[in-house]
Design a protein around this nucleic acid. Structure first.
Lengths: 207, 207
DNA sequence: CGTATGCTCAAACGATCGTTTGATTCCTCG
DNA sequence: CGAGGAATCAAACGATCGTTTGAGCATACG
């Protein structure tokens, strides 16, 4: 077992390089040779530490989704179930952790990976995401249902789904809106959150 | 030059199979060998008729985007510039042609291809889409600006972008909402359009 | 009829893919 | 010190990729 050291251990370096290259070139487009070269490790290290490329992909997801789920649930606990809970507050608990994750230094490209995974339509990956995401989405949906009692279950599902689409689109950065070079990253993130929350809140509240 | 015949000509058969396989497995995931086998043509036919796989991908896009652009522009002409033009009407002109295209018999998978292309983040493809989409988006945005004069240009861009995200998400079918087997396709399409228009109109109109 | 021309075909090309192997190095612990 | 497991390494494996080749077939035209 390797002792703690100044440079990151091999596993972490592979995960970091994988996240970036998967975001940039896709899961099939990024080869293990590019990946291990970028990480500065031997080609065989991926199969030694992870077993296969597919299991590496899973690990890339698991690491970030655990963070995201944790932060979202914590934020939801803070604002939900209160008499003064607002749609905007619940939306912020849903949106802000995702924006933070998508813009913090090392994991800045993970939301692109996630958007790719959505687009891939792979059933194995869908099941994996559903298992790790399912209970979180259900908690948020339940809170929305409490705040929007006049909406039918089907109507609510639709709207939450459309909110997710707008969020995914905005975060993965393929829209027209790009951060201008003279705007600090944190400010841009706050602006993004504000626009998203206002837009989504209006859509959800629509009679 | 081949005469008109009962079976589709080779070029068309390749384009059809390509659309389906690109949607299902991605651009890199679908090989020319799978593709030509599915189309019932020889492996070399792709390079003979299209020059390369990349140019085939371009042709798949061009064919459907021309349809989509044409229908959207025609629908926009019908409803725009009138004193009684509504947000909902313009949204319908934007949304309904896309839903029709994404669900009509042969081209049913193209919107998935488009969603993939968005996620790919490839600059060449982005430029190509911008060249073929740009003027259409500008026309729609101009009409929204006329109907929502209180919104700043930046605010409007943001909201149109979020509408696009919700539409792309809903159409590519990775959301929770799936057509139930006992609902006819046309009815499901109309429901999708209604939900999308109501949600997006509320988001756009938000003060 | 003979000959261009458009098209299809099986076969092969070199490159690159994910994975495996077996030797070698590194570090720990008896 | 020396044994032994963990980790790394260069090299090779078979498979598959996009593309090219050159022969063969069909149809149209003089």
């Amino acid at each position: 077992m390797p002792a703690s050291q100044a440079v990151l251990p091999t596993k972490e370096r592979i995960l970091g390089a994988a996240e970036e290259l998967f975001a940039r070139h896709g899961f099939e487009g990024a080869s293990l040779r590019q990946l291990t070269a970028a990480a500065g490790v031997n080609l065989a290290a991926v199969n030694y530490h992870f077993g296969s490329k597919d299991r590496l992909i899973e690990e890339v997801f698991r690491r970030r989704l655990d963070q995201l789920n944790g932060r979202r649930m914590a934020a939801l606990q803070e604002v939900s179930g209160q008499p003064d809970t607002t749609i905007e507050g619940v939306l912020a608990a849903f949106i802000v952790p995702a924006l933070e994750l998508s813009h913090d230094g090392s994991g800045s490209l993970f939301m692109r990976v996630l958007a790719r995974a959505f687009a891939e339509h792979d059933d194995t990956l869908r099941r994996f995401l559903s298992e790790n995401y399912g209970h979180v989405m259900r908690q948020f949906t339940a809170e929305f249902a409490r705040l929007l009692p006049h909406l039918s279950k089907e109507e609510l599902y639709w709207r939450v789904d459309l909110v997710t689409g707008a969020l995914t689109h905005a975060m993965s950065g393929f829209g027209m809106i790009q951060r201008k070079s003279d705007v600090p990253e944190q400010q841009h993130r706050e602006q993004t959150a504000q626009h998203l929350i206002r837009f989504a809140a209006a859509g959800l509240k629509s009679p």
